[in-house]
């Protein structure tokens, strides 16, 4: 029997209730414990919306999300927050907050009014784990993109989340930082600290770091499985409209986009 940490069953979501075109159309995914599930797809395919539905930041019109076989829609917000961490793509700017205080927010689901020594000690542990202890007293807004991303991952760890949802964690990073952030996620998963679902644009990063990949288009899952099964020239052509060459380097397929497919067939 396959172990399942988190699954969604037939999730449907549209912004205007039932009248509008669905952003998510019968999406069912499964995440095994201590695995990375990559979600790829063109802009507007519903990747971010799916993550938000899983964390119940938005409520799907139909369908359910099961975490350890428990229905999330019936759990309280605090209870969900103890299990699922969400690393947002766009960081809305609030008032200047130190890195320590930002990570401390992750303890919110576990806290009463006082944060005690244990909570603070946990923050320091997490900061050390991600090797960003020296940033603790800096302002979050003054950090580089890569450092900010690490701080947000640290917050999800401080949350003691079992599943971390990451929305485009590498989108604003240089190639070195992209690897750094993905390596951190990979390590956390390998150490069985968390399972992760990552919405990501870069097909090669997805290929290299995901255990399973889901490819979406217009709210539907077009293909799902091992990277080598999903990331094929045919799939990329039909989902992205891009001609690509696939190289088998090691286990993970390596994708070289060639160019848009000439749509001479179009009227």
């Amino acid at each position: 029997m396959v172990m399942i940490k988190l699954e969604t069953i037939d999730i449907v979501f549209s912004y205007d209730g039932n009248s509008g075109p669905p952003i998510l159309d019968d999406v069912s995914i499964q995440l095994a414990p201590s695995r990375i599930l990559g979600i790829v797809g063109p802009n507007g395919s519903g990747k971010s919306t799916l993550l938000k539905c899983i964390d119940r930041i938005i409520k799907p019109d139909h369908g359910s999300v099961l975490l350890d076989r428990r229905e999330i829609m019936k759990m309280g917000r605090m209870e969900i927050a103890k299990k699922i961490g969400y690393v947002q793509q766009t960081i809305s700017r609030g008032f200047p907050t130190s890195v320590f205080d930002t990570v401390l927010m992750g303890r919110r689901p576990h806290l009463s009014w006082r944060s005690d020594e244990d909570d603070e000690e946990k923050i320091w542990e997490v900061l050390r784990l991600l090797d960003i202890e020296d940033l603790a007293l800096k302002y979050f807004g003054e950090l580089s993109g890569g450092q900010q991303q690490k701080v947000l991952i640290a917050r999800a760890l401080a949350q003691e989340a079992e599943v971390i949802l990451l929305d485009e964690p590498t989108s604003n990073l240089d190639i070195m930082r992209q690897f750094e952030v993905m390596d951190i996620i990979r390590d956390l998963v390998n150490k069985k600290l968390v399972s992760a679902i990552i919405a990501i644009h870069d097909l090669n990063l997805a290929s290299r770091y995901s255990d399973k990949i889901i490819m979406m288009k217009r709210g539907k899952i077009m293909s799902a499985g091992e990277p080598s099964y999903v990331l094929t020239a045919d799939n990329i052509a039909s989902v992205y409209g891009v001609e690509a060459v696939i190289r088998k380097q090691s286990e993970a397929p390596y994708i070289i986009p060639v160019g848009p497919i000439k749509t001479t067939m179009r009227k």
């Binding site: 938000k52 964390d55 119940r56 930041i57 917000r77 605090m78 209870e79 969900i80 927050a81 103890k82 699922i84 961490g85 969400y86 947002q88 960081i91 809305s92 609030g94 008032f95 907050t97 205080d101 930002t102 401390l104 927010m105 992750g106 919110r108 689901p109 806290l111 009014w113 949350q159």
Partner: peptide, 23 residues
């Protein structure tokens, strides 16, 4: 004062606040 923690979390945005358990 009782909501001080929730206020902390809310300064970073509603979606993040929700993911941290704050309605």
């Amino acid at each position: 004062l009782r909501k001080a923690w929730d206020l902390n979390v809310m300064t970073v945005g509603d979606e993040t606040a929700k993911s941290l358990g704050v309605e």
